[in-house]
């Protein structure tokens, strides 16, 4: 009798473990939501930072405004998307001799998805490729084209409706951007909101 009780107890324990695992996997696949309801169909969301910096080792390149436009949808309950535009505005360097000749996203669109790491949700932008060409006769990097490649994870804050990208969020989301064979930093806080069918609606990820 004790054996049967033990077996039933073990079965229930196993069920509890399975249940917990299922819950974990579900929370690891967050979805795009508007007014707390999961998005059906697709939507365009836009994020825009007041200031964002791409730190190429040795030459910090900052842009006053940095936008991204994501076409998003939920697939099997998981948020997916494509970054279709990423215009940068008023970019400068920390060297008085170096100007940004051209800078922009190459090889668009970039696939993206939502993921959970720890207790936080992230929007992951993959296959990023940003080309930066510097100019200036007295600039050590004048005439040189540097590419930033990799993936970037930004933490989504449902209260402020922002996505924050920095070294902490890139590390926590197991993403990295590289230039000159080195890991580089990208920082920026992007207020993010719907641009198409769900304008003015509260955007969240969970």
């Amino acid at each position: 009798m004790r054996t049967k009780q033990t077996a039933i107890g073990a079965a229930l324990a196993a069920l509890a473990v399975l249940c917990a695992l299922f819950a974990t996997s579900a929370s690891a696949a967050p979805a795009w939501k508007f007014e707390s309801k999961a998005l059906e169909g697709s939507e365009v969301v836009m994020g825009a930072a007041y200031e964002s910096a791409l730190t190429i080792p040795g030459l910090t390149t900052k842009c006053e405004n940095f936008l991204y436009k994501l076409s998003v949808k939920n697939e099997a309950g998981t948020g997916k998307g494509e970054l279709t535009e990423m215009p940068l505005y008023n970019c400068t360097t920390n060297s008085s001799a170096c100007l940004v000749n051209t800078i922009g996203a190459e090889a668009l669109p970039y696939p993206s998805h939502l993921a959970t790491f720890g207790s936080a949700n992230y929007v992951i932008i993959e296959k990023v490729k940003v080309g930066i060409r510097y100019k200036g006769e007295e600039c050590a990097l004048g005439g040189i084209l540097v590419s930033v490649t990799g993936s970037a994870g930004g933490e989504v804050n449902n209260t402020t409706e922002t996505a924050t990208f920095n070294s902490t969020t890139l590390s926590a989301s197991k993403t990295e951007l590289k230039a000159l064979s080195q890991k580089i930093e990208w920082s920026g806080v992007f207020p993010t909101e719907a641009f198409q069918w769900h304008r003015e609606q509260a955007l969240s990820v969970s």
């Binding site: 405004n65 936008l67 940068l88 505005y89 051209t102 800078i103 909101e193």
Partner: peptide, 13 residues
Amino acid sequence: RLPQPKGAPEQAP
């Protein structure tokens, strides 16, 4: 809530 960029966007190479 989104900042309004000033001027034209930078040109990609």
